[in-house]
Design a protein around this nucleic acid. Structure first.
Length: 582
RNA sequence: CGGGAUGUAGCGCAGCUUGGCUAGCGCGCCUGCCUUGGGAGCAGGAGGCCGGGGGUUCGAAUCCCUCCAUCCCGACCA
């Protein structure tokens, strides 16, 4: 491994640990990475990675490289600064929005800092790959990425500058893409397993990047910004981002005589809860009507009163660029009433997108498009005609799994990786073709696959810490072991500690020697905070019996080790903790 | 971008309401002594454009205007 057998004296290292946590840090990974001296902020969402953090990053990168190469990936490096013309060609210069860091050169030409590299790589491959014989092609890089987030937060979990591995696959056809996708899916499982993370691949939405099939790799953590649902069944592997989780229709259409439509007075009933309480009915009997505006039109979205609209599903259904909830003026103009009284009956001027579940409702309640009035005995199909009927609601825990029918559970996740099937979206936009065996030009079928490297480091801290500090898994720990003499003025102790440190480094272990003239407590606290997986403590008591202490950070377990067995003990303990190389 | 809050020493904070001595405290840092198994003790010391600019005033960290930065909630987002 890259850093094998490297060591350092703590007195010479830049590890500025703090006694107090900077007030600006909210989540635990941000707090600990600051406190333990791994990172320092340069600007909002932009960080210095100090030596310890950089070692962790390099280890994660190395694991990624090995797994990419194993699948036939080739590493290259592409520019951060990208010309606008490529982005105009793909159409994303206008679509990407203010999240794209834009700049001009001295001649006034437009550039951007790459948030992702589809345009660059498609252009590169288009120029130099001409034949089907050169496919498939898997190219990747590990590079800084730039996204001018509206609200950078949570330290490295959502920065504006971050390190990302991105791989792009170029295939002859869809079957080739499927194969490349499966390779990457496997590689990602290997990468995150080797990083000792508790993670789960989930079905996801493809967002602005486009394409069809996609999975996100989620590290399970309460601080995660994404909600995922997954099947509780042991035999079922269904797991999806909440944005994409499919709703299962809950049974049969109710059989009941259709009653006569009536308007009733409902003073000040502006919310589903108000209305349910006023009419003494459950929210399931109410139709919720929400108006949205897109860049093209205003639409009405209908779900059952106890459900929430999934805006991602709605957005995908409408095939629009922008989707916002309508403002009160629009609502008034379209429905003729204030917010809170919209309903589908006689709502002629807008398209209606209706959740499938609503179509099964009988004698329901909805707004009358008049102040303080609602309609009862509303029946879809009889009283209003939907324009689109589809699944547009949010799925919650407790609902049935679309795959096996068992119950779904919810969890929070940090997205550390995503794999996409892009198809010909970019090759078509940028006219990137190769010649097939018949001499016919064909579009490359592409996939793209990202891993947030710095985010993975932060996610590892979210999952591996206690009240004392970080607990690095040995595979990605900045160093494996800290050697510390209890009393730096005791020459014998100090010399023995130095000797053990030297033996460890010579044996290929990554070790630090805490030679600082500090009291033992300070060194113990720092070692726990930084999170070295193992600690060798050289003290008077142990040395009297020819022994030193070996402490495991993870569980605090301490063992006495004979002086001549330290290297073996350290190696075997690292292996026991999951390290595979020593 | 909407709402809320905060900017005083490296970090954590007080002082501001009610303007007035040399701007404070804890930690960290430097020197010395002492101590040496979980962030010791004593003594001495360094370190501030009180976020920037403008105003009010005899006088501004404190009041007013403005800009900037940072954080939180929301909206949005590979």
């Amino acid at each position: 491994m890259l850093l094998e057998g490297t060591g350092m004296k703590v007195s010479e290292m830049l590890v500025p640990t703090l006694r107090e946590i900077p007030a600006e840090a909210e989540v635990i990974s941000h707090q600990l990475l600051l406190k333990a001296g791994f990172i320092r902020k340069a600007a909002a969402g932009v960080y210095n990675l100090l030596p310890l953090a950089w070692r962790v990053v390099r280890k994660i990168e190395q694991i990624i490289r090995e797994e990419m190469d194993r699948q036939g990936g080739q590493e290259l490096m592409m520019p951060i600064v990208q010309p606008a013309e490529l982005w105009r060609e793909s159409g994303r210069w206008d679509v990407y929005g203010p999240e794209l860091f834009r700049l001009k050169d001295r001649h006034g030409r437009d550039f951007c800092l790459g948030p992702t590299h589809e345009e660059i790589i498609t252009t590169l491959v288009k120029g130099d790959i001409n034949s089907y014989k050169q496919l498939p092609l898997l190219l990747y890089q590990i590079q800084n990425k730039y996204r001018d987030e509206r609200r950078p937060r949570f330290g490295l979990l959502r920065g504006r500058e971050f390190i990302m591995k991105d791989l792009y696959s170029f295939d002859y056809d869809q079957a080739g893409l499927d194969a490349s996708y499966n390779k990457m899916y496997e590689a990602y499982n290997n990468v995150f397993s080797r990083c000792a993370l508790d993670f789960r691949p989930v079905v996801a939405d493809s967002g602005a990047i486009g394409g069809k099939d996609t999975h996100e790799f989620m590290v399970l953590a309460d601080s995660g910004e994404a909600t995922i649902v997954y099947c509780e069944g042991n035999d079922c592997s269904y797991a999806a981002n909440e944005e994409r989780a499919e709703a299962v229709m809950s049974g049969e259409k109710e059989v009941a005589p259709l009653l006569e439509l009536k308007k009733i007075h409902t003073p000040d009933c502006r919310t589903i809860a108000d209305l349910a309480a006023f009419l003494k009915i459950t929210p399931e009997r109410i139709i919720k009507t929400i108006l949205y505006t897109t860049e093209k039109e205003t639409i009405a979205a209908l779900v059952r009163g106890d459900r929430e609209i999934n805006e991602i599903k709605l957005y995908n259904t409408l095939d629009c660029v922008r989707l916002d909830m309508a403002n009160p003026n629009t609502i008034l103009a379209v429905t003729g009433a204030q917010t809170g009284f919209a309903g589908p009956v006689k709502l002629k001027s807008v398209r209606m997108v209706v959740d499938s579940e609503v179509m099964a409702m009988v004698n329901a309640v909805c707004g009358a498009n008049e102040a303080d009035q609602h309609l009862v005995n509303v029946n879809p199909g009889r009283d209003f005609e939907p324009d689109i009927v589809t699944d547009i609601r949010l799925v919650k825990s407790g609902e049935p799994c679309p795959n096996c029918g068992n119950k779904l559970l919810e969890a929070r996740g940090i997205e550390v990786g995503q794999v996409f099937k892009l198809g010909d979206k970019y090759s078509k936009a940028m006219n990137a073709t190769f010649l097939d065996e018949n001499g016919q030009a064909r579009l490359f079928i592409m996939g793209c696959y990202g891993i947030g490297v710095t985010r993975t480091m932060a996610a590892a801290v979210e999952q591996n810490h206690d009240e004392r500090g970080i607990i690095w898994p040995p595979q990605i720990a900045p160093y494996h072991v800290a050697v510390l003499p209890v009393n730096h003025k005791d020459e014998h102790q100090f010399a023995m500690a130095a000797s053990i440190y030297r033996q460890l480094v010579d044996a290929g272990v990554e070790a630090v020697f805490d030679d600082r003239p500090e009291r033992a407590g300070v060194k113990f606290k720092d070692a726990d905070l930084v999170g070295y997986p193992l600690r060798i403590t050289v003290g008077a008591k142990g040395l009297a019996g020819g022994q030193v202490e070996l402490t495991t950070r993870q569980n605090g377990e301490m063992k006495m080790i004979p002086l001549d067995g330290v290297v073996d003990a350290v190696k075997s303990n690292l292996r026991r903790l999951g390290h595979t190389r020593l």
